[in-house]
Design a protein around this nucleic acid. Structure first.
Lengths: 172, 172
DNA sequence: CCTATCATGTAATCCGTTACATGATTAT
DNA sequence: ATAATCATGTAACGGATTACATGATAGG
């Protein structure tokens, strides 16, 4: 057991394992894709390497399926559960950066209306999907994911308003 | 001269060199801190290594100061100017992810009102600074930075509205 | 004069992405 | 059957962060 630093992806894995119990990397991949992945996605390879890292640190335990494909199954240890709880209980004042490629191009002089056109299409599709998901959310979905989705919807609207105003301006 | 892939930080360096002419890494660091860094910041070390990478690719040229500290000075080559222009002219439909630590904690069950308190303080300070900057912007600042700042202000307001509603909810 | 802070860089580490590979299911 | 997709991993690479170092400048 060695020191491993816990990064945001670490907590995503810990949080999902806490949510779902024992799981394979592929199962984690599905869970990410259907939930937290909308605002913090991970490559599938990382869902194989990250649980392995966490195993080295003692935050999760790994076992092999008996028969069949002998897949790897991971679950939280007490140490992992404790680390997750402490992280969650500690409020953070950290501010995220926007890091948006379209905004970066705009910053460096891209034509606003041309950019606005493709960005609008993308953000409108994004908003439509979020609203569709929200309207179909089962009642037993906890507050956390529900609120995160709500934030995503508002951010999408902020983007749409922004680009709409730029699309309306005379080109050039 | 070898292949180097152009990443967002690459374009930040190219864009700033195009903006300011020949510059040292330290000068780039100052420029980033005062402009694009508000939505896409870079570590100072990367402002030493990235121009070196770009030199290997032929996008910038490097020369040494004659006297004194013999600092490294970088400026755009024609190839670099061309790469920047092409990148800027190509609209992108890419959508950025939020990747916010506070939201991640909320997603995994953190107490909303406790989190909202510290997040509100941080976002309000952020908003105040952006508005102060906007109100002091010289007239010759181009549209790109001006619009990026405007977007930052709106995003900050979206966050503030979101956390305010959570702060108002009964704790627990 | 001494000590912060500013300025300038290099080196090591490591996380995250990309690429590679292959076995199992499902559909045609 | 066989092609396509799903599922399960490993390996290599490289960009980004962190740590280490040191010379110059300014303030007390």
């Amino acid at each position: 057991m060695q020191e491993v630093r816990l990064t945001p992806p670490s907590y995503i894995v810990l949080g999902l394992l806490n949510w779902t119990g024992e799981a394979t990397p592929y199962r984690l991949k599905q869970l990410v894709a259907g939930s937290v992945g909308f605002f913090w996605s991970l490559q599938h390879a990382q869902l194989y390497t990250e649980p392995e890292r966490l195993t080295r640190g003692g935050y999760v335990s790994e076992r092999r399926e008996e028969g069949g494909r002998r897949r790897k199954l991971y679950k939280l240890t007490d140490k992992g559960r404790k680390a997750l709880a402490e992280w969650r209980a500690e409020p953070t004042a950290h501010l995220s950066e926007v890091r948006d490629l379209g905004l970066l191009k705009l910053f460096f002089g891209a034509d606003p209306s041309e950019l606005a056109e493709v960005q609008l299409a993308a953000h409108r599709a994004e908003l439509a999907e979020y609203e569709r998901i929200r309207d179909g959310l089962p009642d037993d979905v906890p507050d956390g994911p529900r609120l995160a989705l709500e934030l995503g919807i508002r951010q999408a609207r902020t983007w749409i308003d922004f680009w709409e105003e730029l699309a309306d301006r005379a080109p050039g």
